[in-house]
């Protein structure tokens, strides 16, 4: 093997840093979408690396549904303090109060879809022209066709048929007034790459990802955390189980998996043996075959 050789993780890291720097260079006012999930934690580390020894030259933007796990918010606030980043929180509750969106009702009510409006409002209010996100192409079939630089029209919408071809390492961020870009530096990463990178970098992650005792209800095969945001039905039973979360979203739609994995290496083993996709635990994707594509067209992440 030649001495000029990079491992697959270093390759992906270098590519992501390149893309993040392109965003800083090509746009006036970017923001990094931060959810407290593992992908956005990796994104934040990569952004630190891209501008070291300077600080990240743009704010983190958290679209807060109000249905987060408390552990996520605690983690977020600690991280922001530690790295000296600026945090902007956009509240879905504000969008509801202003009458911009109407809360879903019913047993499977979720604020997942409402986030889109809050996000687009925040983009407009702060005049962000690029939003960096941690979405990966391996997550979902509609995302497999995403670009690194994903163009959004003045309504924030994604048109899968009108995306710019991306060649070599040249990214075209030219845009018209009122349009913006979503940029996905982790496009080429898989769930496994993210976990391996977390291990390599020794990144701290919310303890929700590790095995813990929790009260859950089994709803349509998904183990949802028993909490105030979901209404337990008469025929449903709260059980105490040893679980962990493979993705972290809202408490209303993020299912847990039964697991004994208590370290990153355990998780890597578990992911390697997993027979379900990580989004298999996400009720928001199960609404229809093209649920993700439809939400993306509206302006979802």
């Amino acid at each position: 093997m030649s001495k000029y050789h990079l491992t697959h993780l270093k390759h992906l890291e270098s590519e992501a840093i390149y893309v993040i720097r392109e965003v800083a260079a090509q746009f006036q006012k970017p923001a990094l979408l931060f959810s407290g999930g593992k992908d956005s934690i990796v994104m934040t580390r990569l952004a630190q690396k891209a501008f070291h020894p300077g600080r990240i030259p743009f704010p983190l933007l958290h679209v807060d549904t109000g249905h987060n796990f408390p552990e996520t918010l605690e983690y977020r606030d600690n991280l922001v303090r530690e790295i000296g980043a600026t945090l902007i929180v956009a509240l879905v509750q504000d969008s509801i109060d202003k009458g911009r969106v109407v809360e879903e009702t019913g047993i499977n009510a979720s604020r997942n879809a409402l986030q889109t409006t809050t996000l687009l409002d925040a983009v407009e209010e702060h005049q962000f022209d690029a939003a960096l996100g941690g979405a990966r192409r391996d997550e979902e079939k509609a995302r497999a066709k995403e670009r690194f630089f994903s163009h959004r029209n003045e309504f924030g919408q994604w048109d899968p048929k009108n995306q710019r071809p991306e060649l070599w390492n040249i990214f075209n961020g030219h845009k018209g007034f009122g349009e913006h870009f979503r940029v996905f530096p982790l496009s080429n990463w898989t769930e496994m790459d993210v976990w391996q990178y977390i291990a390599l970098e020794n990144l701290e992650i919310p303890n929700l990802y590790f095995s813990h005792q929790r009260e859950v209800v089994n709803r349509n095969g998904a183990l949802l955390a028993a909490c105030d945001y979901i209404s337990i039905q008469p025929d449903e039973e709260i059980q105490k189980k040893k679980v962990r979360f493979r993705t972290i979203g809202d408490m209303t739609c993020t299912g847990a998996v039964e697991s004994e994995a208590s370290s990153i290496e355990d998780i890597i083993q578990e992911v390697a043996a997993a027979r379900l996709t990580e989004r298999g635990t996400r009720a928001d994707d199960k609404r229809s075959e093209t649920a993700m594509e439809d939400r993306k067209k509206q302006g979802y992440f």
């Binding site: 391996d138 898989t190 075959e289 594509e293």
Partner: peptide, 26 residues
């Protein structure tokens, strides 16, 4: 064939990126 139009028409309309790994390579 991820997008709705592709599934309906049975064609691939764009570049799609896929990933897999063996112990040697990604």
């Amino acid at each position: 064939d991820g997008l709705r139009a592709e599934r309906e028409q049975g064609i691939t309309i764009d570049v799609a990126y896929r990933y897999f790994a063996t112990p040697k390579r990604k």
